[in-house]
Computed example of a mutant assay.
Amino acid sequence: MQRSETVMAWNVFRFCTSLRGLGSVMILIVLGIVGVTYYAVVVTNYGPAVLNAGGLESLCALAALLLFHLLLVMLLWSYFSVVLTDPGSVPPNWKPTVDEERGEEAPLNGLEFGNQSLSFQQSVNLADSGSPRIRYCRKCNQLKPPRCHHCSVCGRCILKMDHHCVWVVNCVGALNYKFFLLFLFYTFLETTLVTLLLLRNFITFFSDAEIPGTPGTLATTFLTFVLNLAFALSVLGFLIMHISLVAGNTTTIEAYEKKTTPKWKYDLGRKKNFEQVFGTDKRYWFIPAYSEEDLRKTPALQGLDYPTKADFSAQEF
Rank of each mutant, 00 (worst) to 15 (best):
Y46I: 00
A40D: 10
Y39C: 06
S234V: 13
D281C: 13
W10T: 03
K272G: 05
N170R: 04
A106N: 09
L197K: 01
S18A: 14
G269L: 13
C154V: 00
S4E: 10
M74Q: 11
L189I: 04
K139Q: 05
S81H: 15
G213Y: 06
S313I: 03
P212M: 02
E293A: 13
T187R: 04
D267E: 02
Y186E: 00
K265F: 00
E104V: 08
D267C: 07
E316Q: 07
M1R: 14
I253L: 14
R138N: 01
P96K: 05
V124K: 04
R102A: 07
S119V: 02
G35N: 09
V172Y: 11
I29Y: 12
Y39Q: 05
L236Q: 11
E254R: 01
S234L: 15
F222L: 05
I240E: 04
F317V: 09
E57F: 10
E275G: 00
S4C: 08
Q276M: 10
L268T: 02
G32P: 09
L189D: 05
S123K: 04
P262M: 12
F185Q: 14
H163V: 08
S313Q: 02
L236K: 07
L236T: 11
T97A: 14
T192K: 03
K139C: 02
Y290T: 07
L218A: 13
K271F: 05
L66P: 03
F68H: 14
T224V: 06
N249K: 03
A9Q: 13
F13E: 15
T214W: 07
Q121W: 00
D267L: 08
P288M: 05
L71V: 01
P132V: 04
V246W: 12
W94R: 09
G54V: 01
L108I: 15
I27N: 06
E293K: 15
G54N: 12
L159V: 03
C140F: 03
F13G: 10
L304G: 14
L31V: 11
G155Q: 04
L189R: 11
P307G: 07
S234C: 13
G23F: 13
K272V: 07
S89E: 13
H150P: 09
